[in-house]
């Protein structure tokens, strides 16, 4: 558990031995029980989904707790073809990567401008961005759909890319502005003396220095773009050629009641894997990114 100590030395350091006695008071025991139960409630359905994905459809109900592997990889085989999952994953990747690139290309200069702006207008602009947090995305679903139709981009992935990177601007610009503000202004001044233009200062001095901020924003937006559902469903549509993995997945649940649960579980596993692999690799960084994104928002 060396990760823990490295992560926040400030907290563990001093209070460690002082607080120890209180740690096992009755309050903490109740805490363990409650949080433990909640953790089990969180993991249990996931466990069930994973083991069910390898079962035949009758075993799912008959032996809910034990992994039987009675279907091997057959469910995955079926679902992969049925959902055209390869195509769907590529569509997800295309939308996510393009939106990310576009988001950063637009948000980075904007946050540089804001971080260096003086006077009232900078403050006002920042407030306008902050307002964006209070506008729930869902409210604008229908008007956004009409906009897509009006500009002749209904049923295109490209409109989703434009939309996603637009709505990410408030959070990204505000987060990046905070990172930009930590760059000492002496660096900028000496660059000016060397005859650098604004753009050069931005691209050669600021961008390299705020790389950690860019990584945070990228991780944060990767998850939110990859997981987007409703707008992509409504605007890009559910046709196999354009749908993302999120839009494809719910289509295996049949409304008529003859759903094959094992296949649904296999589909869920396939769709969850990419983000979980990312999480296993980035672990702490991903947590920090999501926490930072939420705390700033």
């Amino acid at each position: 558990m060396s990760v823990t100590r490295a992560a926040s030395p400030a907290v563990t350091r001093r209070s460690g031995q002082k607080r120890r006695p209180g740690l096992f008071g009755p309050g903490m025991v109740v805490g363990y029980v409650v949080v433990g139960l909640y953790a089990v409630t969180l993991l249990f359905p996931l466990y069930w989904v994973v083991i069910s994905a390898f079962k035949d459809k009758f075993d799912v109900f008959r032996t809910p707790l034990t992994p039987t592997f009675s279907a091997g990889l057959a469910n995955f085989d079926f679902v992969w073809t049925y959902l055209e999952a390869g195509k769907a994953l590529l569509n997800s990747l295309y939308i996510t990567a393009a939106s990310l690139a576009l988001t950063l290309v637009v948000a980075l200069p904007a946050s540089y401008g804001l971080a260096r702006a003086r006077g009232r207008i900078g403050g006002i602009v920042e407030k306008v961005y902050a307002l964006g947090f209070l506008i729930p995305g869902f409210a604008a679903l229908v008007p956004t759909l009409l906009l897509a139709i009006a500009v002749n981009m209904y049923h295109t992935r490209e409109f989703i890319i434009l939309y996603l990177s637009a709505t990410a601007q408030p959070l990204c610009v505000i987060l990046l502005t905070q990172f930009m503000r930590t760059v000492p202004s002496e660096l900028e001044e000496s660059a000016v003396i060397d005859g650098a233009s604004r753009w050069q200062i931005f691209s050669r001095v600021y961008v390299p220095l705020v790389m950690p901020g860019i990584a945070t924003v990228a991780i944060l937006q990767f998850i939110s773009y990859w997981n987007e559902y409703l707008y992509t469903l409504v605007i890009a549509g559910a046709q196999p050629a354009r749908r993302t993995i999120q839009v494809a997945l719910p289509t295996i649940v049949s409304g008529t009641g003859n759903t094959n649960y094992a296949q649904v579980c296999a589909g869920t596993v396939i769709s969850i894997i990419p983000v979980f692999v990312m999480y296993i690799i980035l672990n702490r960084r991903m947590e920090d990114a999501l926490i930072q994104g939420a705390l700033k928002g």
Partner: peptide, 24 residues
Amino acid sequence: ALAAFTVPSLVWYLLFMMGPLVAM
């Protein structure tokens, strides 16, 4: 010059977020 850095993001954001809200 700084405004030129910020305006594209701002316009884009307002177009997609405020526009639909007004349209509603």
